[in-house]
Write a protein that binds this DNA or RNA. Structure first.
Lengths: 193, 193
DNA sequence: TTGATTTCTTAACATACATCAATGCAGACG
DNA sequence: CGTCTGCATTGATGTATGTTAAGAAATCAA
């Protein structure tokens, strides 16, 4: 229980041993089954999920019922709907589990308290925000500047594990194209090998 | 000199009077002419720009020489290339002035020092990061889920002043379409009035 | 003012991607 | 074991957007 989070805090966030137990006491563990919903549109998101095992996704559903995947979160990733979490607005997005998953769950207040306890935690939290911005900006860059094929090549380069773990139509959804188009892109790439 | 930044810190960031002077001493003012470059690709971005007057843009140039605008920054906005500023990587992007502008300039170290002086400043800085994430995420959402027309309608709704101040081809570049397509979109919209 | 440059629009045509429909395949499950 | 369901692929066709080229309008510079 919480081993994954413990190791993460110790080895990546560099939280000092003296603070680890205190911080760990403040979070809880949640096990979810595949397809279980963790956030629905219209609700206010209160949680951040740390994925110890499994795979989550954050996505929107448009007027015509189509899903648009904003983000995947495999092991050792944090996932939340920050616009709702931080600003307290009802979420426009959904979160669910793509695999049976084991999560560590905490809220915004935890982040503030842990930041007061551990300066390393505070710094890492800022690192996460900055890193998130960097990724979103790069993604915008390829959405406005690159075609479907190069976006797909970039995706498999960046997230090879995820390609193996989710159906292709979800990758297509993340890339902003249809499953049929992605299938054709993949055929084109295969031809050149 | 620095009046705009002073009022912003006092009225929006809520920095206490006791801290204002000390913080203001640490920043400098820069006046730039239209078209002046503030960041080039390949350089490490050291600055954040606060726009007191004028208009900046952050953009990329692709292999074929086309510009892709990532962000505009009119009065009272902060602009920087955070991926480069925070992580110290060479920037993939450019920043220049679209109008004669008056800027307040500071660096990452300033942010840390001002955060130590004023907790209000620290909180506002986090607010800016969270807000930035929210905007980028919404933009990704419309890039993968909406067509050119609705992206344009959203843009003029969100940034009506900017539409008045930049050439339309730059709006097109921001939206990820060609100027010709934007022209057609605008004609379609006009027909329905 | 005048000429030069940039911007916007329009049209004809090209292309990337979407849509619709059918098929095949594989894992889930009775 | 067979049936069902979800997923991937393919082809035919439609549509949104890109490309190229030209001219009109606006802006800028001298």
């Amino acid at each position: 229980m919480k081993e994954g989070f413990y190791h993460y805090l110790r080895d990546r966030v560099f939280v000092r041993s003296a603070h680890l137990a205190e911080i760990l006491k403040m979070v809880s563990v949640k096990k979810v089954k595949k397809n279980e919903m963790l956030l629905m549109r219209g609700l206010i998101c209160r949680n951040v999920f740390f994925v110890e095992k499994g795979l989550l996704r954050l996505y929107a559903i448009d007027e015509s019922g189509k899903e648009h995947i904003i983000q995947f979160a495999p092991e050792n990733w944090f996932l939340s709907e920050r616009a709702s979490l931080y600003f307290g607005n009802p979420s426009e997005y959904f979160i669910d589990a793509l695999e049976d998953s084991s999560l560590v769950v905490f809220d915004q207040e935890f982040i503030e308290r842990a930041s007061d306890i551990s300066v390393e935690f505070r710094n890492y939290n800022e690192y996460l925000l900055q890193n998130h911005i960097r990724h979103l900006q790069n993604r915008i860059h390829s959405l406005i500047g690159a075609d479907a094929k190069s976006r797909y090549l970039k995706f498999i380069d960046l997230y090879p594990e995820i390609v193996q773990r989710v159906p292709q139509w979800m990758v297509a959804s993340y890339l902003g194209i249809t499953p049929e188009s992605l299938s054709r892109v993949r055929r084109d790439i295969a031809l050149f090998k």
